[in-house]
């Protein structure tokens, strides 16, 4: 029943999975997407295309996905509940599927307050877990209202996000479980900048056997500056940055090199962690470093499946 995307095949093969991320531009210039695609081709199995991230208007994730397909990369379409009701969401899935996209990542979406249209009305007709349920139904041939599709159902590999750094801590695992129950196949975590807390979370995940039901990709973000780390710690809700990490960056002579080094060490650590299926590298505005990270973390070349 499940779609045979490359990402899915990799996940099922038992190999260590690598996914990347490309943020569509705030314009209709598809060349920017194409440029990143060329640069990153071959380093990851699949690339997330963000959906109006932080509630800022950007080129649509499905359109960007089409460009990736043209360049021979596999897209992972993000879809947020903020801007679509259940009708639009299903319609977009059908459209993306028709264009050959198979990976979909369901998110609640950042609140519009943080974006460039803070006075917009939000939708939140359904939440991310309910959206996963809808997609799971669709691939089984049913619309959200229970109506059966007349034609072939879309082939979907359904993803979700998990944030081990938000509260209440214990409930975060329950929420992942709910997402698995709803039908999610894989999960990408919030970027890990507090490894100790992440490990505690994984312990709880393993205790419930969730890692066997859903593929967990740990989020990796190389940090460029001490300021960025401190900003994230202080101002970004649901984000934790350990003091050790900040201290390490502060002591470093070359902060950028140290940031990369930390990311690489984290990947090494995740490789050894039970229940981790792979990593999701979010090199925000630093996409050019993804090849170096993959290279140095021993993630290249990617195996064929």
């Amino acid at each position: 029943m499940k779609a045979a995307s490359k990402l899915q095949r990799m996940c099922e093969s038992g190999n260590f999975v690598v996914t990347g991320e490309i943020g569509p531009p705030k314009s209709c210039n598809g060349e920017i997407v194409r440029h990143h695609a060329k640069m990153l081709k071959g380093w990851c199995e699949s690339f997330n295309l963000t959906d109006n991230q932080t509630a800022i208007v950007r080129l649509s994730s499905i359109a960007a996905g089409k460009i990736l397909l043209e360049e021979g990369l596999e897209p992972n379409i993000q879809i947020v509940c903020r801007d679509r009701n259940r009708i639009a969401a299903q319609s977009d899935i059908l459209g993306a599927s028709a264009l050959g996209m198979k990976n979909v990542l369901c998110l609640s979406g950042d609140h519009q307050k943080f974006g460039n249209h803070p006075t917009a009305k939000n939708v939140f007709d359904v939440d991310s877990i309910q959206l996963i349920q809808i997609l799971d139904g669709m691939r089984k041939g049913y619309f959200a209202n229970g109506e059966q599709m007349k034609d072939e159902p879309p082939q979907l590999f359904i993803g979700c996000a998990a944030n081990p750094f938000a509260d209440p801590f214990e409930f975060r695992v329950t929420r992942l479980e709910k997402k698995a129950d709803a039908g999610a196949d894989f999960c990408q975590t919030q970027c890990i900048l507090d490894m100790e807390r992440f490990e505690r979370w994984m312990e709880l995940v393993r205790a419930r056997g969730l890692h066997k039901r859903i593929k967990i990709l740990g989020g990796i973000t190389p940090i460029k500056s001490v300021k960025a780390a401190k900003y994230m710690k202080k101002f970004v809700a649901g984000m934790m940055v350990s003091d050790d990490l900040i201290e390490r960056l502060e002591k470093a002579e070359d902060v950028k090199a140290e940031g990369l080094q930390i990311a690489i060490e984290q990947i090494e650590r995740l490789k050894k962690m039970e229940g981790i299926a792979g990593v999701h590298i979010m090199a925000i505005a630093w996409e050019e470093k993804v090849p170096e990270i993959c290279q140095r973390a021993g993630l290249a070349p990617r195996p064929e499946v």
Partner: peptide, 14 residues
Amino acid sequence: SKSIFNGPCGGSQN
């Protein structure tokens, strides 16, 4: 803030 039914979303802290 998001009227979600299966929360809390990832922005919930403390």
